[in-house]
Simulated assay, not measured.
Amino acid sequence: MTVQLLKNESLEELQYQDLKVFVADAIGPKSSSSMTAGYARFEVAGERMEWSFSYDEVLYITRGAITIHFDGKSVTGRPGEMIFIEKGTKVVYETAEDGSALVYVSYPDWQATQADSDFKQLMERFHPVKGK
């Protein structure tokens, strides 16, 4: 058993295409065999990120507002609110405010599961942040 303090500056960020959308895993395969947790930040309002889920995920909004579009519907989360996204769901994230951010928890590990799914091509949209 262990307890770890995880600091943002030690995490590797990935950028979604050329948008100002960044994600970083704090917990993943190196520290947990069953789940992933990390953060996402969206610097510019109105940017949209398409994604399809091969895993379950919970989002906890920490700053700003983030809208999730799915199946012709939308939900907008604000600080202190949570959004659950079920495996198999296709969504579009849209930043409703500059500087929006969230914490995510996925089960099982999102990167490994996504890379081994019908949605693996979506992984190519992420790249490491240059200069980090």
Rank of each mutant, 00 (worst) to 15 (best):
L11R: 06
V21N: 04
A45G: 03
S31D: 07
S52E: 02
I85E: 02
I27G: 03
A101M: 11
A24S: 08
K20T: 13
V21R: 05
V103F: 11
D56H: 07
G77E: 01
P79G: 01
Q111G: 11
I66H: 03
E13Y: 13
F119I: 00
E97I: 09
Y107S: 15
E12L: 10
E86T: 14
S34M: 08
S74A: 11
Q4W: 06
I61N: 00
S31R: 07
H127Y: 02
T2L: 13
P79E: 02
A24N: 03
E57V: 02
E81W: 08
V58P: 03
P128Y: 03
E97Q: 12
E47G: 08
H69W: 12
N8A: 14
L11V: 02
A40D: 12
I83F: 01
D109S: 13
K90R: 11
A26G: 06
G131C: 03
E124P: 06
D118H: 12
S34D: 11
T2C: 08
V129E: 00
I27F: 06
T67A: 11
M49W: 03
H69Q: 05
A24R: 06
V44W: 09
Y104K: 06
Q114P: 00
L6M: 08
P128Q: 04
N8G: 11
D109Q: 14
M82A: 15
Y104A: 00
E97D: 12
G64W: 09
V44R: 14
Q17Y: 05
Y107M: 15
G28L: 05
Y39N: 14
I66W: 01
K20I: 09
W110D: 09
A45D: 04
S52Q: 05
V103M: 12
G131K: 09
S54R: 00
E50G: 07
W110A: 14
V44E: 14
R63E: 15
F126L: 09
M82V: 10
Y16T: 06
S52H: 09
T62Y: 07
E13M: 13
S34C: 09
A37I: 10
A101R: 08
E57S: 01
Q111V: 15
R41W: 09
V105Y: 14
V91T: 10
P29N: 09
A26P: 03
D18N: 11
F42P: 07
P108S: 05
